[in-house]
Design a protein around this nucleic acid. Structure first.
Lengths: 103, 103
DNA sequence: ACTTACCGTAAGCCGCGAGTTACATATTTG
DNA sequence: CAAATATGTAACTCGCGGCTTACGGTAAGT
């Protein structure tokens, strides 16, 4: 039931951009806001939503807070995705197997 | 870039419920509206969004229109998900392999 | 042909949430 | 200790979108 919050969290472009920006490396709020067309408080609010959805981690470091991607948070979304395929072996599973066999 | 529309499509509960209701079998608009707390026109509008996102198929059958899940529409979302893992073998891929080995 | 069933579209209302500015708090720096 | 830096929170505005009612159109039934 956590996928609901994940969908609403990633539905808004600004929030997706922030989340995607964390793919490179953990960043502070200021860093994230610098690469965004919205104000810094807006980024803070978005990060709160992302954190509530279990998509990011926070690690306070003195004066600033370092945000990073929490990959486990995407598991619920993945399971939800898989629930739409009747068989256990999904397209992605087949793709992984195909790569393994090629090696 | 289609995952954006998928996120916004599945972010609203009513639309998710409609989409999930199609897991059982293809249904008409009336059938879908019957199992929903919203009006039938609302369901129609939601179906339009789902169709624009490539998540459902329509097949006009005489008087009514039969909607069904379009699984390929979820591929973009899946690829987006995978883009957050550095290595090719994701948690789900590992799970699939685990099941295969058990057999 | 008339009526009924099924569905999409138009127009309008209204609440939610994304964004801003202003302010409060805490840590670092000089 | 004072100033600057980094971040969160509060209060407010405002536009988007979800929902409803009303209507139009097409197919089926009698």
């Amino acid at each position: 039931m956590a996928y609901a919050e994940i969908f609403t969290a990633l539905a808004v472009p600004a929030r997706r951009h922030i989340f995607e920006a964390l793919r490179e490396r953990p960043k502070t709020v200021g860093e994230l806001a610098a690469g965004q067309p919205v104000s810094r408080p807006a980024v803070s609010q978005h990060l709160r939503v992302l954190e509530a959805a279990g998509l990011v981690n926070v690690e306070p470091q003195g004066n600033r807070r370092l945000y990073s991607i929490k990959r486990d948070g995407l598991n619920d979304l993945r399971e939800y995705l898989e629930s739409f395929w009747p068989d256990a072996l999904t397209a992605h599973g087949a793709e992984v197997l195909r790569r393994m066999e090629k090696k």
